[in-house]
Every structure is written in C-alpha cells, then in structure tokens.
Amino acid sequence: MSVTDEELAEQHEAGDRLGAPSRLRVVAGRFFGSFQGRAGFALLALMFLLAFAGPFLGRWSYTDRDFTAFLAPPSADHWWGTLQTGADVYAVTLRGMRRSLVVGLLAAVVGTTLAAVVGAFAGYFAGWTDRALTWVTDLLLVLPAFLILAVMSPLFASGQWPLFVLVLALFLWMVTSKIVRGVTISLREREFVYAARFMGVRPTTVIFRHILPNMSSLLVVDATLNVSAAILTETSLSYFGFGIQPPDVSLGSLIADGTRTALYAPWTFWFCAGLLVVTVLAVNMVGDSLRDAFDPASGRGRR
C-alpha cells in the first residue's frame, strides 16, 4: 500500500468515527490483529493464571513432603509426579514460576525506568552531566554482570529477593539508556520542547512531561523484552545457586535439581524447563508484536 493510499484510508477511518482515534486503541487493534500478538498474549495470560491461580487447585503446598512417594511418576494423587524429596512437582513448579515471573517483571520495569531517567537526563542536559552519566553507563557495561551478581548472592538470603530484583535491574538498563539518550538529543531540538522551555517550565518537568512520553512506545517494547532477559538471567543465576536461595524455589533451581534425575525421572526436568521456555517465548512474541503495533511503518506488505 502506498503512502497516499494509507493517508486516504486513515482519513476515511477518522471521518467515520468523527475525530482522531485514540492511540491506545490503534495500537491495541494492530496488536490483537496479528496472530503472533494474540497467541503471545493468550500464552502469557495462561502462564500468569497457572502461576497465581494454579496452586489453589492442587492438594499439595510447595513445602509439603509426601513420605509415601519419592520420585513417583505422575498419577492422580500427584499430577506431575514427585521429586526425590517427596515434594509435589506441580506445587513446586508453580511456586517457582510465580517467583520467576514476579522477579522478571519487577526487574524489567525498574531497569527500563532507570534507563529512561538516566538516558533522558544525559541527553537533555548534555555537557558534564552527559559525560558523567555516559561514563557510568560504560562502566556498568564493562563489568561482567553475571560475576558481580554471583559475588553478591550471599546478600540475597531467604526473604531478601527484592534486593535481588534491584541488583538484577542495575545490570539491565545500559543499552536502552544509550538509545534513550540518542532519541532525547533529537527531541530536544523540537518545537514543543522549545515552547515549554521558553514558557519557563523547569527542565525536570520538561523531561518527564514532554520528552519521556514521546518515546513511550520504545520504552514499553523495551520493558517487555527486558522481562524475558530478566527471567533468563534469574533462572541462570538460580541454576548455580546464586539467585533465589532455598527454601524459596525458582525455575532455575528446579531445573538444576531436575537435570540430575532427568534421565530416569523425566517429569522432574521437563515440566519446569517447558514452562520456562513457554513463558520466555510468550514474552518475546508479545514484545515483537508490540514493536510492530507501535511502528507506523511496519506490517502491511513488503517494505
């Protein structure tokens, strides 16, 4: 479809509804218009439902041990079988998934917020603020994130997982912040920003009210894709025992336990590994469809 066709179509649409359609409605329409968006959203909703409502369906809690069934295959009593300790795989896996989902979501939101603030301040103020913030960004890029997180793991003893979220977020924001800085530099020269500045609006207000809302699409997409990055980092750290600490469980620690018995008791490995893969896949699909939905140039035929 050529540009004029698109303009015509847009005018036609706008004329039908009398007034410009809201941006949210346009984006949502395009998002749910694609198969990928619908499938990703449905999968993700299913995962959340399973993680938060699923435990109420099962008979066992994640701390229960069934001393009559060690490493038992799936049955009517234990839907997904049991572990070597007698723990119910269904209960433990859902508990771990809940922890992984919450950690991933929070870390992504905190990380993207940090990226937006640091990038916008660096780009808007330029000069020494820019140089200092860019240097800190580079420093964190150079530090091996996995090693630092692992060294700090003794601090995340049981119950301290919010701290883990914060440290995880600290290593998620650098690349996005560089992109935000670039966009801010170009937005800074736009008329609406000049207008606000000449009216005497304070710089921080300009940033939060005029600059950041203008790149909301970038930030939303980035936050979504950060969720899968955060979940993957969290499970990898927990796999080596550096992340979520026992007695709490996460998908990573469950996979680590499951690999030892995977060959003769496949249910200890495949359920948690499968759920992790499906979750990450769903998040990636949602992120990718969101990017297409926000991008006015994408979709609809060949480029």
Binding site: S228, S236, Y239, I255, V277, M285
Partner: peptide, 11 residues
C-alpha cells in the same frame, strides 16, 4: 529461531 531464542542455554 523464535523457539530457540526462548530456550536458555542451561535447558
């Protein structure tokens, strides 16, 4: 590639 990207190295 979408499926492979969703599978962490540990898995």
């Amino acid at each position: 590639s979408f499926a492979v990207l969703a599978v962490p190295t540990v898995v």
